[in-house]
Nucleic acid binder design. Sequence first.
DNA 1: GTCTATACTTGGATAGAC
DNA 2: GTCTATCCAAGTATAGAC
Lengths: 196, 196
Amino acid sequence: MKHFSELTPSAERIVDAAENLIKAVGYNGFSYEGISQAVGIRKPSVHHHFPSKTELGAVVAQRYTHRFKESLVRIEGVFAKPEERLIAFAKLFETTYANDRNLCVCGMLGAENDSLPNEVVTEVRKFFQVTLGWLEAVISEAKSKGALKADSSPKILAITFLSAMEGAMLVGRSLQSQEGPEMVAHALIESMTPEH
Amino acid sequence: MKHFSELTPSAERIVDAAENLIKAVGYNGFSYEGISQAVGIRKPSVHHHFPSKTELGAVVAQRYTHRFKESLVRIEGVFAKPEERLIAFAKLFETTYANDRNLCVCGMLGAENDSLPNEVVTEVRKFFQVTLGWLEAVISEAKSKGALKADSSPKILAITFLSAMEGAMLVGRSLQSQEGPEMVAHALIESMTPEH
DNA sequence: GTCTATACTTGGATAGAC
DNA sequence: GTCTATCCAAGTATAGAC
Protein backbone atom coordinates (compact mmCIF):
# COMPACT_ATOMS: atom_id res chain seq x y z
CA MET A 1 0.00 0.00 0.00
CA LYS A 2 0.98 3.60 -0.56
CA HIS A 3 2.86 5.24 2.29
CA PHE A 4 1.96 8.74 3.41
CA SER A 5 5.59 9.86 3.33
CA GLU A 6 5.63 9.53 -0.46
CA LEU A 7 2.71 11.81 -1.20
CA THR A 8 2.96 14.44 -3.90
CA PRO A 9 1.66 17.91 -2.97
CA SER A 10 -1.67 17.25 -4.66
CA ALA A 11 -2.04 13.91 -2.96
CA GLU A 12 -1.28 15.61 0.33
CA ARG A 13 -4.09 18.11 -0.18
CA ILE A 14 -6.43 15.25 -0.94
CA VAL A 15 -5.45 13.45 2.25
CA ASP A 16 -5.92 16.69 4.19
CA ALA A 17 -9.42 17.08 2.79
CA ALA A 18 -10.29 13.44 3.42
CA GLU A 19 -9.04 13.66 6.99
CA ASN A 20 -11.19 16.69 7.70
CA LEU A 21 -14.22 15.08 6.11
CA ILE A 22 -13.76 11.89 8.11
CA LYS A 23 -13.52 13.88 11.33
CA ALA A 24 -16.82 15.54 10.45
CA VAL A 25 -18.93 12.96 8.62
CA GLY A 26 -17.00 9.71 8.71
CA TYR A 27 -15.82 7.27 6.06
CA ASN A 28 -19.32 6.38 4.93
CA GLY A 29 -20.29 10.04 4.92
CA PHE A 30 -17.68 11.39 2.55
CA SER A 31 -17.35 10.96 -1.20
CA TYR A 32 -14.90 11.65 -4.00
CA GLU A 33 -17.22 14.46 -4.98
CA GLY A 34 -16.79 16.03 -1.54
CA ILE A 35 -13.00 15.74 -1.76
CA SER A 36 -13.13 17.16 -5.24
CA GLN A 37 -14.97 20.24 -4.06
CA ALA A 38 -12.76 20.73 -1.01
CA VAL A 39 -9.54 20.51 -3.01
CA GLY A 40 -10.78 22.27 -6.12
CA ILE A 41 -10.07 19.57 -8.68
CA ARG A 42 -12.34 17.11 -10.50
CA LYS A 43 -13.29 13.65 -9.33
CA PRO A 44 -11.08 11.74 -11.81
CA SER A 45 -8.10 13.75 -10.61
CA VAL A 46 -8.75 12.48 -7.12
CA HIS A 47 -8.88 8.94 -8.48
CA HIS A 48 -5.58 9.57 -10.22
CA HIS A 49 -3.92 9.95 -6.83
CA PHE A 50 -6.04 7.44 -4.94
CA PRO A 51 -7.60 4.86 -7.27
CA SER A 52 -9.83 3.49 -4.53
CA LYS A 53 -11.56 4.96 -1.52
CA THR A 54 -10.18 2.09 0.54
CA GLU A 55 -6.63 3.19 -0.14
CA LEU A 56 -7.40 6.81 0.61
CA GLY A 57 -9.03 5.87 3.90
CA ALA A 58 -6.09 3.69 4.89
CA VAL A 59 -3.56 6.42 4.12
CA VAL A 60 -5.55 8.96 6.13
CA ALA A 61 -5.58 6.65 9.16
CA GLN A 62 -1.93 5.77 8.70
CA ARG A 63 -0.79 9.38 8.52
CA TYR A 64 -3.06 10.33 11.42
CA THR A 65 -1.53 7.66 13.62
CA HIS A 66 1.97 8.73 12.67
CA ARG A 67 1.30 12.36 13.49
CA PHE A 68 -0.38 11.38 16.72
CA LYS A 69 2.72 9.43 17.69
CA GLU A 70 4.81 12.51 16.92
CA SER A 71 2.57 14.49 19.26
CA LEU A 72 3.06 11.91 21.99
CA VAL A 73 6.82 12.09 21.63
CA ARG A 74 6.63 15.88 21.69
CA ILE A 75 4.71 15.70 24.95
CA GLU A 76 7.50 13.58 26.42
CA GLY A 77 9.97 16.28 25.46
CA VAL A 78 7.98 19.09 27.04
CA PHE A 79 6.48 17.56 30.17
CA ALA A 80 8.37 15.45 32.65
CA LYS A 81 5.59 14.56 35.08
CA PRO A 82 3.10 11.88 34.12
CA GLU A 83 0.17 13.96 35.41
CA GLU A 84 1.17 16.78 33.08
CA ARG A 85 1.55 14.35 30.23
CA LEU A 86 -2.00 13.10 30.72
CA ILE A 87 -3.37 16.63 30.57
CA ALA A 88 -1.31 17.36 27.46
CA PHE A 89 -2.66 14.15 25.95
CA ALA A 90 -6.23 15.27 26.61
CA LYS A 91 -5.45 18.62 25.00
CA LEU A 92 -4.66 16.84 21.74
CA PHE A 93 -8.27 15.68 21.62
CA GLU A 94 -9.56 19.00 22.89
CA THR A 95 -7.87 20.80 20.00
CA THR A 96 -9.59 18.57 17.46
CA TYR A 97 -12.90 18.91 19.24
CA ALA A 98 -12.63 22.69 19.58
CA ASN A 99 -12.36 22.87 15.81
CA ASP A 100 -16.02 22.55 14.82
CA ARG A 101 -16.68 19.71 17.29
CA ASN A 102 -14.72 17.37 15.09
CA LEU A 103 -14.04 13.83 16.23
CA CYS A 104 -10.78 11.94 16.41
CA VAL A 105 -10.27 10.34 12.98
CA CYS A 106 -9.82 6.91 14.48
CA GLY A 107 -12.66 7.37 16.95
CA MET A 108 -14.99 8.01 14.05
CA LEU A 109 -13.56 5.13 12.03
CA GLY A 110 -13.76 2.90 15.10
CA ALA A 111 -17.49 3.56 15.31
CA GLU A 112 -17.84 2.67 11.64
CA ASN A 113 -15.59 -0.37 11.98
CA ASP A 114 -18.11 -2.95 10.81
CA SER A 115 -18.69 -1.20 7.50
CA LEU A 116 -15.04 -0.45 6.74
CA PRO A 117 -12.68 -2.21 4.32
CA ASN A 118 -10.12 -4.42 6.05
CA GLU A 119 -7.15 -2.22 5.18
CA VAL A 120 -8.74 0.65 7.06
CA VAL A 121 -9.76 -1.51 10.01
CA THR A 122 -6.15 -2.61 10.36
CA GLU A 123 -4.82 0.94 10.44
CA VAL A 124 -7.42 1.99 12.98
CA ARG A 125 -6.53 -0.87 15.28
CA LYS A 126 -2.89 0.20 15.17
CA PHE A 127 -3.85 3.67 16.34
CA PHE A 128 -5.54 2.29 19.41
CA GLN A 129 -2.74 -0.15 20.18
CA VAL A 130 -0.08 2.54 19.96
CA THR A 131 -2.07 5.08 21.93
CA LEU A 132 -3.02 2.63 24.67
CA GLY A 133 0.58 1.47 24.97
CA TRP A 134 1.74 5.02 25.53
CA LEU A 135 -1.03 5.79 28.01
CA GLU A 136 -0.38 2.60 29.93
CA ALA A 137 3.27 3.54 30.42
CA VAL A 138 2.41 7.05 31.55
CA ILE A 139 -0.23 5.82 33.97
CA SER A 140 2.07 3.14 35.27
CA GLU A 141 4.69 5.75 36.07
CA ALA A 142 2.13 8.01 37.69
CA LYS A 143 0.98 5.18 39.92
CA SER A 144 4.46 4.16 40.99
CA LYS A 145 5.21 7.79 41.85
CA GLY A 146 2.05 7.91 43.91
CA ALA A 147 0.65 10.69 41.73
CA LEU A 148 -2.32 8.56 40.76
CA LYS A 149 -4.36 6.37 43.00
CA ALA A 150 -6.50 3.60 41.54
CA ASP A 151 -6.65 -0.13 42.09
CA SER A 152 -7.16 -1.13 38.47
CA SER A 153 -4.17 -2.06 36.34
CA PRO A 154 -2.49 0.60 34.18
CA LYS A 155 -3.75 -1.28 31.12
CA ILE A 156 -7.36 -1.01 32.22
CA LEU A 157 -6.92 2.58 33.34
CA ALA A 158 -5.45 3.42 29.94
CA ILE A 159 -8.50 1.96 28.21
CA THR A 160 -10.74 3.84 30.63
CA PHE A 161 -9.00 7.13 30.04
CA LEU A 162 -8.94 6.81 26.25
CA SER A 163 -12.55 5.64 26.20
CA ALA A 164 -13.53 8.72 28.15
CA MET A 165 -11.71 10.98 25.68
CA GLU A 166 -13.26 9.40 22.60
CA GLY A 167 -16.67 9.26 24.22
CA ALA A 168 -16.49 12.85 25.41
CA MET A 169 -16.20 14.08 21.83
CA LEU A 170 -19.15 11.98 20.75
CA VAL A 171 -21.34 12.99 23.68
CA GLY A 172 -20.36 16.65 23.46
CA ARG A 173 -21.13 16.71 19.77
CA SER A 174 -24.54 15.13 20.33
CA LEU A 175 -25.38 17.76 22.94
CA GLN A 176 -23.85 20.49 20.80
CA SER A 177 -21.82 21.42 23.83
CA GLN A 178 -18.66 23.48 24.03
CA GLU A 179 -17.35 21.17 26.70
CA GLY A 180 -15.36 18.24 25.47
CA PRO A 181 -12.52 15.87 26.33
CA GLU A 182 -10.49 18.29 28.41
CA MET A 183 -13.24 18.81 30.95
CA VAL A 184 -13.72 15.06 31.21
CA ALA A 185 -9.99 14.47 31.57
CA HIS A 186 -9.80 16.89 34.46
CA ALA A 187 -12.72 15.24 36.21
CA LEU A 188 -11.13 11.83 35.75
CA ILE A 189 -7.65 12.79 36.85
CA GLU A 190 -8.95 14.75 39.79
CA SER A 191 -10.92 11.75 40.99
CA MET A 192 -7.78 9.61 40.84
CA THR A 193 -5.48 12.07 42.53
CA PRO A 194 -4.67 11.24 46.15
CA GLU A 195 -5.49 13.87 48.77
CA HIS A 196 -2.51 16.01 49.67
CA MET B 1 -43.82 12.66 12.88
CA LYS B 2 -44.86 9.05 13.32
CA HIS B 3 -44.77 7.75 16.88
CA PHE B 4 -43.29 4.35 17.68
CA SER B 5 -46.30 3.37 19.77
CA GLU B 6 -48.48 3.29 16.65
CA LEU B 7 -46.41 0.85 14.64
CA THR B 8 -48.05 -2.05 12.85
CA PRO B 9 -46.35 -5.43 13.25
CA SER B 10 -44.56 -5.07 9.91
CA ALA B 11 -43.43 -1.58 10.76
CA GLU B 12 -42.14 -2.90 14.05
CA ARG B 13 -40.03 -5.53 12.33
CA ILE B 14 -38.62 -2.84 10.08
CA VAL B 15 -37.68 -0.69 13.06
CA ASP B 16 -36.10 -3.73 14.73
CA ALA B 17 -33.98 -4.38 11.65
CA ALA B 18 -33.03 -0.74 11.29
CA GLU B 19 -32.02 -0.53 14.94
CA ASN B 20 -29.76 -3.54 14.62
CA LEU B 21 -28.21 -2.22 11.45
CA ILE B 22 -27.57 1.18 13.00
CA LYS B 23 -25.86 -0.46 15.98
CA ALA B 24 -23.59 -2.32 13.59
CA VAL B 25 -22.95 -0.02 10.64
CA GLY B 26 -24.61 3.30 11.45
CA TYR B 27 -27.13 5.48 9.68
CA ASN B 28 -24.92 6.12 6.67
CA GLY B 29 -24.02 2.46 6.51
CA PHE B 30 -27.47 0.95 6.17
CA SER B 31 -29.85 1.00 3.23
CA TYR B 32 -33.43 0.10 2.40
CA GLU B 33 -32.00 -2.90 0.60
CA GLY B 34 -30.38 -4.07 3.83
CA ILE B 35 -33.63 -3.66 5.75
CA SER B 36 -35.44 -5.44 2.97
CA GLN B 37 -33.17 -8.46 3.27
CA ALA B 38 -33.27 -8.55 7.05
CA VAL B 39 -37.06 -8.40 7.20
CA GLY B 40 -37.73 -10.53 4.15
CA ILE B 41 -39.84 -8.09 2.16
CA ARG B 42 -39.06 -5.93 -0.86
CA LYS B 43 -37.71 -2.42 -0.82
CA PRO B 44 -40.97 -0.69 -1.81
CA SER B 45 -42.73 -2.45 1.06
CA VAL B 46 -40.27 -0.83 3.42
CA HIS B 47 -41.01 2.53 1.86
CA HIS B 48 -44.70 1.85 2.33
CA HIS B 49 -44.16 1.89 6.10
CA PHE B 50 -41.41 4.51 6.19
CA PRO B 51 -41.52 6.77 3.13
CA SER B 52 -38.17 8.32 3.97
CA LYS B 53 -34.99 7.13 5.62
CA THR B 54 -35.07 10.25 7.77
CA GLU B 55 -38.34 9.21 9.34
CA LEU B 56 -37.18 5.66 9.91
CA GLY B 57 -34.01 6.89 11.59
CA ALA B 58 -35.95 9.26 13.82
CA VAL B 59 -38.39 6.54 14.90
CA VAL B 60 -35.53 4.18 15.70
CA ALA B 61 -33.87 6.77 17.91
CA GLN B 62 -37.17 7.74 19.50
CA ARG B 63 -38.10 4.17 20.40
CA TYR B 64 -34.58 3.44 21.58
CA THR B 65 -34.67 6.37 23.96
CA HIS B 66 -38.07 5.33 25.27
CA ARG B 67 -36.95 1.78 25.95
CA PHE B 68 -33.77 3.03 27.53
CA LYS B 69 -35.83 5.19 29.88
CA GLU B 70 -37.88 2.10 30.74
CA SER B 71 -34.66 0.30 31.60
CA LEU B 72 -33.61 3.16 33.84
CA VAL B 73 -36.91 3.07 35.69
CA ARG B 74 -36.61 -0.70 36.02
CA ILE B 75 -33.18 -0.25 37.58
CA GLU B 76 -34.71 2.09 40.15
CA GLY B 77 -37.21 -0.61 41.03
CA VAL B 78 -34.57 -3.28 41.48
CA PHE B 79 -31.64 -1.50 43.04
CA ALA B 80 -31.85 0.92 45.92
CA LYS B 81 -28.23 1.95 46.26
CA PRO B 82 -26.81 4.44 43.79
CA GLU B 83 -23.59 2.41 43.44
CA GLU B 84 -25.63 -0.60 42.37
CA ARG B 85 -27.63 1.54 39.98
CA LEU B 86 -24.47 2.71 38.28
CA ILE B 87 -23.31 -0.84 37.74
CA ALA B 88 -26.73 -1.84 36.41
CA PHE B 89 -26.56 1.14 34.10
CA ALA B 90 -23.20 -0.01 32.75
CA LYS B 91 -24.66 -3.48 32.20
CA LEU B 92 -27.22 -2.03 29.80
CA PHE B 93 -24.34 -1.00 27.55
CA GLU B 94 -22.46 -4.20 28.20
CA THR B 95 -25.42 -6.24 26.97
CA THR B 96 -25.51 -4.35 23.70
CA TYR B 97 -21.75 -4.62 23.33
CA ALA B 98 -21.66 -8.32 24.16
CA ASN B 99 -24.01 -8.90 21.22
CA ASP B 100 -21.54 -8.79 18.32
CA ARG B 101 -19.71 -5.73 19.68
CA ASN B 102 -22.65 -3.57 18.74
CA LEU B 103 -22.67 0.09 19.68
CA CYS B 104 -25.32 2.10 21.48
CA VAL B 105 -27.73 3.35 18.78
CA CYS B 106 -27.36 6.94 19.92
CA GLY B 107 -23.61 6.63 20.38
CA MET B 108 -23.30 5.62 16.76
CA LEU B 109 -25.72 8.31 15.62
CA GLY B 110 -23.90 10.85 17.77
CA ALA B 111 -20.68 10.09 15.93
CA GLU B 112 -22.48 10.57 12.61
CA ASN B 113 -24.26 13.71 13.84
CA ASP B 114 -22.91 16.08 11.19
CA SER B 115 -24.23 13.96 8.33
CA LEU B 116 -27.65 13.26 9.85
CA PRO B 117 -31.01 14.84 9.01
CA ASN B 118 -32.22 17.29 11.64
CA GLU B 119 -35.10 15.12 12.85
CA VAL B 120 -32.63 12.41 13.79
CA VAL B 121 -30.19 14.84 15.40
CA THR B 122 -33.02 16.09 17.60
CA GLU B 123 -33.96 12.61 18.80
CA VAL B 124 -30.35 11.74 19.53
CA ARG B 125 -29.88 14.87 21.60
CA LYS B 126 -32.91 13.91 23.68
CA PHE B 127 -31.34 10.54 24.46
CA PHE B 128 -28.26 12.18 25.88
CA GLN B 129 -30.21 14.77 27.84
CA VAL B 130 -32.46 12.16 29.43
CA THR B 131 -29.62 9.78 30.20
CA LEU B 132 -27.37 12.46 31.64
CA GLY B 133 -30.21 13.76 33.79
CA TRP B 134 -30.74 10.34 35.29
CA LEU B 135 -27.03 9.74 35.84
CA GLU B 136 -26.58 13.13 37.43
CA ALA B 137 -29.29 12.36 40.01
CA VAL B 138 -27.81 8.95 40.81
CA ILE B 139 -24.32 10.34 41.17
CA SER B 140 -25.57 13.21 43.25
CA GLU B 141 -27.20 10.79 45.65
CA ALA B 142 -24.11 8.63 45.79
CA LYS B 143 -21.99 11.63 46.65
CA SER B 144 -24.28 12.88 49.40
CA LYS B 145 -24.30 9.38 50.92
CA GLY B 146 -20.52 9.37 50.81
CA ALA B 147 -20.50 6.34 48.51
CA LEU B 148 -18.67 8.25 45.84
CA LYS B 149 -15.79 10.60 46.31
CA ALA B 150 -14.94 13.14 43.61
CA ASP B 151 -14.63 16.90 43.58
CA SER B 152 -16.28 17.49 40.23
CA SER B 153 -19.99 18.28 40.06
CA PRO B 154 -22.51 15.48 39.53
CA LYS B 155 -23.25 16.99 36.11
CA ILE B 156 -19.63 16.72 35.01
CA LEU B 157 -19.25 13.29 36.55
CA ALA B 158 -22.36 12.14 34.68
CA ILE B 159 -20.86 13.32 31.39
CA THR B 160 -17.60 11.63 32.31
CA PHE B 161 -19.26 8.35 33.14
CA LEU B 162 -21.45 8.27 30.05
CA SER B 163 -18.53 9.31 27.84
CA ALA B 164 -16.53 6.43 29.21
CA MET B 165 -19.36 3.98 28.44
CA GLU B 166 -19.86 5.19 24.89
CA GLY B 167 -16.13 5.38 24.28
CA ALA B 168 -15.50 1.93 25.73
CA MET B 169 -17.70 0.36 23.09
CA LEU B 170 -15.96 2.23 20.32
CA VAL B 171 -12.46 1.46 21.59
CA GLY B 172 -13.29 -2.16 22.35
CA ARG B 173 -14.73 -2.63 18.89
CA SER B 174 -11.65 -1.12 17.27
CA LEU B 175 -9.40 -3.48 19.21
CA GLN B 176 -11.77 -6.38 18.60
CA SER B 177 -11.71 -6.92 22.33
CA GLN B 178 -14.14 -8.83 24.49
CA GLU B 179 -13.80 -6.22 27.17
CA GLY B 180 -16.24 -3.39 26.97
CA PRO B 181 -18.16 -0.84 29.02
CA GLU B 182 -18.60 -2.96 32.12
CA MET B 183 -14.88 -3.30 32.72
CA VAL B 184 -14.45 0.43 32.27
CA ALA B 185 -17.35 1.18 34.61
CA HIS B 186 -15.80 -0.94 37.33
CA ALA B 187 -12.45 0.79 36.95
CA LEU B 188 -14.14 4.18 37.12
CA ILE B 189 -16.35 3.47 40.09
CA GLU B 190 -13.57 1.79 41.95
CA SER B 191 -11.35 4.83 41.52
CA MET B 192 -14.10 7.05 42.93
CA THR B 193 -14.96 4.84 45.89
CA PRO B 194 -13.61 6.07 49.22
CA GLU B 195 -11.37 3.72 51.20
CA HIS B 196 -13.27 1.81 53.85
C1' DG C 1 -49.37 -4.77 2.73
C1' DT C 2 -46.80 -6.47 -0.69
C1' DC C 3 -45.31 -6.82 -5.17
C1' DT C 4 -42.95 -5.56 -10.11
C1' DA C 5 -41.27 -2.05 -12.63
C1' DT C 6 -39.08 2.02 -12.98
C1' DA C 7 -37.25 6.82 -12.24
C1' DC C 8 -33.76 9.63 -10.65
C1' DT C 9 -29.54 10.64 -8.16
C1' DT C 10 -25.24 9.78 -6.26
C1' DG C 11 -21.09 7.25 -5.68
C1' DG C 12 -17.00 4.77 -7.03
C1' DA C 13 -14.40 4.04 -10.87
C1' DT C 14 -12.20 3.97 -15.90
C1' DA C 15 -10.81 5.63 -20.79
C1' DG C 16 -8.50 8.61 -23.18
C1' DA C 17 -7.41 13.56 -24.62
C1' DC C 18 -4.55 17.53 -23.31
C1' DG D 1 -1.77 16.08 -13.22
C1' DT D 2 -5.90 17.48 -14.76
C1' DC D 3 -9.64 17.38 -17.66
C1' DT D 4 -14.34 15.70 -20.24
C1' DA D 5 -17.02 11.96 -21.03
C1' DT D 6 -18.84 7.87 -19.63
C1' DC D 7 -19.91 3.39 -17.17
C1' DC D 8 -22.05 0.73 -13.82
C1' DA D 9 -23.79 -0.22 -9.30
C1' DA D 10 -26.26 1.21 -5.42
C1' DG D 11 -29.32 4.12 -2.93
C1' DT D 12 -33.66 6.65 -2.19
C1' DA D 13 -37.93 6.97 -3.80
C1' DT D 14 -42.56 6.61 -6.62
C1' DA D 15 -46.40 4.52 -9.64
C1' DG D 16 -49.55 1.38 -10.02
C1' DA D 17 -51.11 -3.63 -10.08
C1' DC D 18 -52.61 -7.43 -6.98
